[in-house]
Amino acid sequence: MKVEQISVFLENKAGRLAEVAKILGDNGVNIGALSLADTTDFGILRLIVNDRQKAKQVLKDAGFTVGITEVIAVEVDDTPGGLARILTPLAENGINVEYMYAFVEKSSNKAVLIFKFENLEKAIEVLKANNITILPGEKVYNL
């Protein structure tokens, strides 16, 4: 049910993001999705990759601070109202979204939403009860 996401601490200065992309590329790690949260001083880069152990290792070796976090991937039709159908039941159950980002699946034309909740277990329950498709990790890593 849960998906492991890589997070990387980045100082807000030129070339850091490029450095991460290059290291991953040089080591044959493919980035499926990413989001960047930033302040004036630093940023938190979040990545879904095809090989997270390798990604973590090569980035750590290059001196980056790397974390692995559990998130949830949800599949939704890429049509108007798709996101609202997911967020409404969560809001009704008082579940707070810490952050989210989205990408479109190439083959099926569906959107994949990556969510981080404070209470993952409860979120999973609510999503299931509302017949929302939660993607297993193995599927997400290789999208």
């Binding site: 996401q5 997070s7 601490f9 302040t39 979040r46 601070t65 790397v66 974390g67 952050y99 981080k116």
Partner: peptide, 15 residues
């Protein structure tokens, strides 16, 4: 230095 122990994926927790 942002070592692993004090690094979070969540901006709220980091701040």
């Amino acid at each position: 230095e942002a070592s692993e122990n004090i690094f979070f994926d969540s901006m709220k927790k980091q701040k």
